[in-house]
Nucleic acid binder design. Sequence first.
DNA 1: CGTGTTTGTCATCTA
DNA 2: TCTAGATGACAAACA
Length: 419
Amino acid sequence: MSDLSSCTLQIHRASSEKFAATADFKGSLTEQNLGRARHDKMSPFPPQQGWTRGTFLPLHNPLTGGDPGSQGEMELTWQEILSISELQGLDIPVESCYDTTLCGHTQQMVPASGYGPCTGMVDNLVSSYSHPVPMYERLHPETMPVPCTIYGYTGTLISSSLDPPGPASLSGCEGAPEMILGRDLAGICGTQVPCKPQEDLESDSGLSLNYSDGESLEAEGLERAEYTPLYPMDHTTVYTMLPPVPEIPFPNPHMEHSLEKGRNPRELAGSRDERRALAMKIPFPVEKIINLPVDDFNELVSRFPLTEQQLALIRDIRRRGKNKVAAQNCRKRKLETLVHLEQELDDLSRERQRLLRARGEFNRTLMLTKQKLGALYHQVFCMLRDEAGNTYSPEKYMLQLTAEGEVFLVPRNKQGNSD
DNA sequence: CGTGTTTGTCATCTA
DNA sequence: TCTAGATGACAAACA
């Protein structure tokens, strides 16, 4: 703020009615006092964060079983699962309770036929899967060293048919793996609780699913829970070797519920496709169907003589699987966008408060400046004298400041002409 | 039992 | 024209 008392004013009388004056306060009022709005740099719009593309899908974690059941059934079950694993060359998740290292009787589970579990599987499992599997490995397990594994079909079988974990789980490993296939549980639940139809659990819109799934199999008179022997899969021959495998339903909703406690219940929905793939004898795992790049996928599909129904199912599985991941990513992005917008809202709210405070401060400064200008005006005006030494009447004359900094005394009725 | 959340699925659009 | 991805809408399961 300029000190008005320090202003020097030189007023010129340009004519009989007009004085010219120069003042050194030019600019001081317009720039200094009126002030320039602080050019506070607006906080730049936060760059959109890159979306987190990696969606870590939880691995299936088939729970440990409870009642060991009969040794014979267990062995048979184990053989079934191991047969599938060999059939399909699938992965086994580390969380799997079927890690045979936990079971002392692994060897006796190995079928002597030669198509049992791969030897060395235990070591591989322990070394390769003793930590959470990275996303890349999960998405492209075919690129990783894959031991003889069970994942996909067998994961479904296991997760959908195991007893709930119980105190006997660990001790049960001493005798046999804690697993019961659908057949077994079907028998169990048949005597305890009526089996809940699968579609009660996993309803399907039926859209574009014109393949023979479990329901149609059932309609065709096949017992859904009927035990179907599984044969070792030679990838080149299993397609023709496999007998019809009906979709294996969840034998008992309560069992399933207790089984999957602590897990995402929706993970089971993925297994619906796995069961369907199994029922349709799709000779490769659902995981591959979904995650393989399109070229690899096409190459894989072309390697097998597939029926139209199988192809339709495979395409359906792939579409659903892709869309599931896309939906997960989409929701994640939506949440991140929401968080980002809330942050932006907070930032803008703070900026608004800051600008309001600045505006109030500027208004106060402007008012003060106007008061000082008025006082200066009055002081200057009172100092002016005409030729007779009389003061000018403020009603008849006024001072005008030009852009050049000159001050003129002009009659009020001519003020408009002076511009 | 009503309600909110999570998740899978489908339809549709877009690149 | 086909395909994959994105997203709104809906439904089911669950807390």
